[in-house]
Nucleic acid binder design. Structure first.
Lengths: 122, 122
DNA sequence: TAAGGTACCTACCGAAAGGTGTGTACAAGG
DNA sequence: CCTTGTACACACCTTTCGGTAGGTACCTTA
């Protein structure tokens, strides 16, 4: 997303947005709140995500300390992802925003699917 | 940002992120929570924003119904921006996220400014 | 022997986001 | 007369984001 130079987070809000600002990140967090999931499971949960983006976002979330990655050294590789305590807290903090989004969901969909230049009979 | 196709917001959270997902949007909302501001004032508050982006983001926030734009037809143009009730609610909903961000601000800054490949003496 | 599943990696490409620099109408101020 | 300030619009350019396609190592199953 709009990754700002991180030397200068202004109010914490921009820092948080920087963490969850990828296309699939909130959905990943949301999905992982149900419990630990394997890579393939996640992929099936997030319909339409490409493997590249899923991995990339998972890595970033891991780097940011909100997602934990656990590798089981077995022969068909088995990797499980889960939320850290930071991740759980982040999910909690996202609740009100999700609620706001739910309230305005249909309104926003309408706005955004509408043509910007309402050509009411030319 | 990562504007998803809005026919399919999954959980409201992605809808909300879509609204506040621009580089300067949360900062605009944050600044406007202090009260109505003119374009130039906003620009001075948000250090480093380009006029183009400020206008673009303001227009989008206006379209999404969270920011109100008021034009006074005077000769040196005077345009004032303020939060709508939706915008106020959105700001409230962003509070916990901002708090989370504040708690993790320095940690995130450290992580993100650090070299990813710690080249400990080559 | 061949195919399939796991969890990735890599190179390449188009689209979107964001920044820069200029122009504009109008009046006030020096 | 020239400059300054307001609130933009527009063209151009670079960077980032996200997606597609292909490949890998290993084992299982047919």
């Amino acid at each position: 997303m709009s990754q700002r130079n991180p030397q200068s987070y202004v109010c914490g809000l921009d820092a948080a947005i920087d963490v969850v600002g990828g296309k699939w990140k909130v959905l990943i967090l949301w999905t992982l709140s149900e419990g630990r999931k394997r890579f393939g499971e996640l992929k099936r949960c997030l319909d339409g995500v490409s493997e590249k983006m899923l991995i990339q976002h998972l890595r970033e979330l891991e780097r940011d300390g909100v997602v934990h990655r656990e590798v089981h050294n077995v022969v068909p590789p088995r990797v499980e992802y889960s939320l850290t305590e930071y991740g759980v807290a982040l999910n909690e903090a996202l609740r009100p925003l999700g609620a706001w989004g739910c309230e305005h969901k249909t309104r926003l969909e309408t706005i955004r699917n509408a043509p910007e230049d309402t050509p009411t009979a030319v």
